[in-house]
C-alpha cells in the first residue's frame, strides 16, 4: 500500500502511463476518490474487466464539479462526470456538455427515475442528525418552536445546504419564508460546507446538524458507536440522488457507457454503503450491511424534478437570505 501510494505520487508528476490501454477519465468529488471513499475499490473492479485504465479526477464537491466542467468546456478530458445531484442536473443538462446514456437499468429508488442523460448511483435522505441523549423534535414546526440548536450549511456554497433549502420549500411552499424566520433563533451558525458543520456538531457546538439519514450508519459500523440517530420529520424528507453522466465530447463513448452501467453492478454498488455512507441505487445481492437496517425510514420522500428544482432555487434563496439576514 505504502509503495503503491509512493509510486502513484512519483508517476503522477510525470503524467506517464505504463500501459497503452485506453483511458477513461472520470471527474468526481474529492471524497469519492480518497482512500476512504468508494473510488479505489471501484477503480480496481472496473479495470479488472474493461481492458482499460480508469482515472478518477477529484474536483472539490458536487457544485465545484459542475463549475470545473463548465470552465473546461468541450476541451475537457472528462469522459464521465460522477457525483452531481438532482438539484444540479438541470443546470448541467443545459450546458449541452452531456450525452444521453442509452441505458435502462432496474433501480431501487424511493421515486421513479426517468432521465435519459443522468443515471443515479446512490442516494440518501437529508435529515438532522443528533446524539441519542437528545429527545428530537418530530417535525420542522416542532423544531422551530423548540430551543433545540442546529447547524446548517449555506445553500450558496454547499449541496446539503441547497438540499435543505428545497426541502423546506417542498414542505412549506408559500410559508417557507415564515418558517425560516421561525427557525432563525435555532440556528447556531451556517457553515460553508458539510465538513465544517458536521465537525462542529461532533465537537458539541449544537444539538443537531443537517446531514443524511445514513450518517448514523458510519458511527455504528466504522466506530461501533450506536450513540447517533437521525430525526424523522413528519413533513417528509428531501432526497439527495447522486448521478453520473457521459460527457458529450468523450473520445471513449463505449467505455464511458460501460462505466456508467458498471456503477450499477453488484461490484460497485456493494462498495457504496460503507464508503460513501449512502444507499446504493441498486440493492446488492447480499443486501445492505448491518447497521443500515437500524436507520429511520421516512414515510414521505420529497423531491423536485430537476427543472422545478432549478426554478424554485432562486426565489427560495432570496427568502432564505431575507429571513436569516434580519
Amino acid at each position: 500500500m505504502k509503495f503503491q501510494l509512493l509510486a502513484a505520487g512519483l508517476f503522477a508528476a510525470t503524467g506517464a502511463s505504463a500501459q497503452d490501454a485506453p483511458v477513461v477519465t472520470v471527474y468526481t468529488y474529492d471524497s469519492f476518490v480518497t482512500e476512504w471513499g468508494p473510488g479505489p475499490a471501484i477503480e480496481a473492479a472496473f479495470e479488472a474487466e474493461c481492458a482499460c485504465e480508469l482515472r478518477f479526477v477529484g474536483a472539490g464537491d458536487g457544485a465545484a464539479l459542475l463549475a470545473r466542467l463548465r470552465l473546461e468546456g468541450e476541451r475537457t478530458e472528462a469522459d464521465v462526470v460522477l457525483g452531481l445531484d438532482t438539484n444540479l442536473t438541470a443546470a448541467a443538462a443545459d450546458t449541452g456538455l452531456f450525452a444521453p446514456h442509452g441505458l435502462d437499468p432496474e433501480l431501487d429508488l424511493p421515486v421513479e427515475w426517468e432521465d435519459d442523460i443522468f443515471l443515479p448511483f446512490d442516494w440518501s435522505y437529508f435529515a438532522f442528525v443528533h446524539r441519542n441523549e437528545l429527545n428530537p423534535p418530530e417535525s420542522f414546526r416542532e423544531l422551530a418552536e423548540s430551543d433545540v440548536s442546529v447547524l446548517i450549511q449555506d445553500p450558496r456554497s454547499s449541496t446539503p445546504g441547497l438540499g435543505l433549502l428545497l426541502w423546506v420549500e417542498a414542505a412549506y411552499g408559500d410559508e417557507a419564508g415564515a418558517f425560516w424566520s421561525a427557525l432563525a433563533d435555532n440556528i447556531v451558525t451556517v457553515t460553508a460546507g458539510w465538513s465544517e458543520a458536521y465537525n462542529l456538531f461532533l465537537e458539541g457546538e449544537a444539538d443537531m446538524v443537517l446531514s443524511y439519514t445514513t450518517s448514523p450508519a458510519y458511527h455504528a459500523i466504522a466506530e461501533e458507536d450506536d450513540g447517533f440517530a437521525a430525526a424523522a420529520f413528519e413533513e417528509g424528507h428531501y432526497l439527495q440522488i447522486e448521478v453520473g453522466g457521459i460527457v458529450a465530447s468523450t473520445d471513449q463513448p463505449e467505455l464511458a457507457r460501460d462505466f456508467l452501467a458498471f456503477m450499477l453492478s453488484d461490484a460497485a454498488q456493494s462498495v457504496i454503503p460503507t464508503t460513501n455512507w449512502m444507499y446504493p441505487a441498486v440493492v446488492p445481492q447480499d443486501g445492505l450491511p448491518e447497521g443500515f437496517g437500524d436507520l429511520i425510514q421516512p414515510d414521505r420522500a420529497l423531491l423536485y424534478p430537476p427543472d422545478e428544482a432549478a426554478a424554485a432555487r432562486e426565489a427560495a434563496l432570496d427568502e432564505w437570505l431575507l429571513a436569516l439576514s434580519r
Partner: peptide
C-alpha cells in the same frame, strides 16, 4: 461563514464563491 452565524455575515469572498460555484 463559520462564525458569522448566517448570511448577515456575507463577505465579498463568499459572494465571489457563490458567483463561481452556484
Amino acid at each position: 461563514l463559520t462564525l458569522g452565524g448566517g448570511p448577515r455575515a456575507t463577505t465579498i469572498e463568499l459572494a465571489i464563491y457563490q458567483a463561481f460555484r452556484f
